[in-house]
Design a protein around this nucleic acid. Structure first.
Lengths: 359, 359
DNA sequence: TTGTAAGCGTTATCAC
DNA sequence: GTGATAACGCTTACAA
């Protein structure tokens, strides 16, 4: 493994100074065409790849941002990342999962600090301590995440999502709609939306809480529900169920089928997240979509904003993506009374209607 | 955002030289306890985080390895990563997805080169060109990946997995077993295993090929199969189906149910990959597991091996994880006739038996 | 055991 | 336009 060629090698080969090479590589316009060509061929011939280590050390920025997510199993973050990448063009993203790192006693935020990233996207639970003394421009992405003084929050409006799902079922004529909820901030927000919508429509809310947010927990809870209804003494089986996530909706469908209840004829079901399984032909699950892609895009724009005024006037050439103004939602204060009120954006979710709701 | 403290700041505050600080931080034993304590408190007080940029530049290694995967949607890689992390303790991993990067015209391998990673794990399709002139110790992880001269291959034996699934169904008494396959190297290997096992048992193979490896494509293909069987003229419906992945198995189950065929009573189904959905109570899918966790662990050990003799005699203190010898499988040659025959490991898959196969 | 000093490969600031 | 020449924050001989 021969050592990698350096900018010196390139300069020598092209017969110019190291500075000129640097200029060419950064796309400066004040370089003669011949010199530029000479440098470029030298680069190609040597298969030269500039060292980001050195560049970061010498320069004022690293042109990189760190993304902290909960865990890679969360399929949810894939489109988020795509969105981030789209609006954060020009920056290289590196991802770390809080769960695994924590398991190893490593703090992802600390890791990114030592990498000297220019900014941070916090999309997962992060150790309180590490976050307090951040010292790096950051945005919080998602809902269950903490509110950070100085860091804008970009999240999907899950309460609104809960209302959306409930309204859909109600408008389909259902009056006895059960909400299958669970623990956690997301579940709570979605459930709150359900309660609100039910209340406004004069319908009686009926919440069932599973032990966990998994398919099997939902299966068990729903099975219990149908079993009780069968007994006769308990309240009758509902005609519709809003599950706070898709796997749980699958659990409901399974439990119903086990009791001979078909979906959607005997029971209308709506899930949440519009995960890949929702689109399965076999399930065709109506689901609320938080549009993670857009979430990422908006968060990226917000961070870009932060980065821009942290670095002072327009870092020329930095506009790898569209530097449009941050959308209007980004105006409200997240915490009115705080010392450093950061703007917040709550993005409206959409309802993806499929067969499971019988629409 | 005050500038981050440097090793100089720590040294000054602790009343020692920069070198001493460096020694302490790297856990050298040749440091007096007082000085060590002084340094440590200074570090804490200043909230000092060493710069990996500077460390990488100055040192001979960066203690980091790059992992290239296909796309983050591939849930498969999450446990792989966990395995890698386990055996690559001491190195920091960074992940890049080939798909998204390619979309942006970025070459992940090039990116890692400029980051000066010590090693590479190639778990996704990588541009041929970039790979040829690698110049970095690497291992190839997975199956559809290219064979790289000099890079060991660590993969799951999917042919064996295909046999496993088929044998399971055959031993359950099924004789008319259909293999629902698709395009791609993985599908081909799994299907080949099916054919082999059927052949050895004197059973007639019957392969159905879906247009894609998705649930919906499988649903369509399976629906066609049952429809034809119903007609009477065509061959009868099989009593068992081996689908080359879990979503496709779900498609089969759905199509069967649509025809009034219940699983497993009327049809036994086996999938592949043991993805999360396979464990769903509602599906309870028997599935072949390639044990991605172990795959990652073995690949990590192999890379560690490479890294060790690339860096010369035991880089003291590098043993962040177990430096056990690489397993026996790592002995065979991947490409006997090649210039640089790299060792290869084909890991045996396991069968996870659930209800869908009626066992 | 501890300090000194020479790099490491860039960027950035000047002169020319 | 182009080229010296300091930083940048750390590791690593080599001295002391």
């Amino acid at each position: 493994m021969a050592k990698a060629p350096t900018i010196y090698d390139v300069a020598r080969r092209a017969g110019v100074s190291k500075s000129l090479v640097s200029l060419v590589l950064r796309g400066s316009s004040r370089v003669s065409d011949e010199k530029r060509a000479a440098v470029l061929t030298a680069v190609a011939e040597l298969d030269y790849t500039p060292s980001r280590l050195a560049a970061g050390l010498a320069g004022s920025r690293t042109r990189s941002v760190g993304v902290v997510i909960d865990e890679f199993e969360n399929l949810w973050f894939a489109p988020v990342l795509a969105g981030l990448r789209a609006s954060l063009g020009g920056y290289s993203l590196s991802v770390a999962d809080a769960a695994l790192n924590a398991h190893l006693g490593l703090d992802p935020v600390e890791a990114f600090r030592s990498l000297r990233v220019d900014g941070l996207v916090l999309a997962g639970e992060v150790p309180e301590a590490a976050v307090q003394r951040l010292g790096i421009p950051a945005v919080v992405l998602g809902t269950r995440s903490m509110l950070l003084p100085g860091a804008p929050l970009v999240a999907s409006d899950e309460r609104a999502g809960g209302r959306l799902a409930t309204a859909h079922l109600a408008e389909l004529g259902h009056r006895d709609i059960v909400c299958l909820s669970a623990t956690g901030a997301s579940s709570a927000a979605r459930e709150a939306g359900y309660r609100e919508e039910m209340g406004e429509r004069g319908l009686a809310p009926r919440v069932l809480r599973a032990a966990r947010t998994t398919e099997s927990a939902a299966f068990a809870a729903a099975a219990g529900l149908f079993e009780a209804a069968r007994g006769g003494a308990a309240p009758p089986a509902p005609s519709a169920v809003f599950a706070v996530n898709d796997p749980m909706a699958v659990g409901v469908i399974g439990a119903a089928r086990a009791r001979g209840i078909e979906v959607p004829c005997g029971l209308a079901v709506v899930g949440y997240d519009d995960s890949p399984i929702a689109a399965y032909e076999t399930l065709s699950l109506t689901s609320v979509s938080g549009d993670p892609r857009e979430l990422g895009e908006v968060a990226g724009r917000a961070l870009r904003e932060l980065l821009a005024d942290a670095a002072g006037p327009v870092p020329a050439g930095a506009s790898g993506g569209a530097r449009e103004p941050v959308p209007a939602e980004l105006g409200r204060d997240a915490a009115p009374g705080r010392a450093a009120p950061a703007p917040a954006a709550l993005l409206p979710p959409r309802l993806i209607v499929r067969r499971s709701s019988g629409a």
